[in-house]
Design a protein around this nucleic acid. Sequence first.
DNA 1: CAGACATGTAAGCGATGGCTTACATGTAGG
DNA 2: CCTACATGTAAGCCATCGCTTACATGTCTG
Lengths: 107, 107
Amino acid sequence: MERALQALADPTRRRILDLLMEKEMAAGEIAGHFPQISRPAVSQHLAVLREAGLVSERQAGRFRLYRLEADPLREIWEGWLRKYQRLWEGRLLDLKRLVESEEWEEE
Amino acid sequence: MERALQALADPTRRRILDLLMEKEMAAGEIAGHFPQISRPAVSQHLAVLREAGLVSERQAGRFRLYRLEADPLREIWEGWLRKYQRLWEGRLLDLKRLVESEEWEEE
DNA sequence: CAGACATGTAAGCGATGGCTTACATGTAGG
DNA sequence: CCTACATGTAAGCCATCGCTTACATGTCTG
């Protein structure tokens, strides 16, 4: 999960995952979606995502197809983020109102 | 969401949020849970979390109490991570069709 | 095989990140 | 007030990051 969260900190890598959500894609096709950065840069992003387990690759002819692997995302959700869910649902609204109205108790 | 994900990339900052999930805490009390790093380092982590909207602070006497703010976490979930949920819930074969028909189901 | 094409890897560079120590700010309480 | 305490801020250091260009690897195709 550590590596995955670090990988997700970069917006380009998140956009790559968004692309791969629709279908698996060759490295060149992915790079084509990022005209502002060079192709090797995208290749390095793909290496980071692969080391985080967020994508898998397979050789197909002279192309290399990348596929999304959602398991680390599940780990982030079930292993960490999920436990905060109750805080942003319902019960917190009252606390939030308290905060905003400066109704604080001393100590 | 960008700033929040960047803040969450650091494990110390995630542990700070875990601490604050139980109760609000003074900066010094938080720093006490991290004997291996200096108190100013923790203070800087708190500043990062604050700029990401993940914590709020209030002065209480000569202490400064930090409170968890879960809204950015909700944003990460609802605005990005959640759309991958069905991918880790075993419907990989139907993925392509689901995406193309935009049939998003809740939970 | 030879050349073209798809891609990864290496080297280097400027920016950022996380840490430290030293100092500044601000609040409380005699 | 004046001093101690709780905390934030500044400056500097070194590692890492994200990017670039140049080169290496590997696979198809004639």
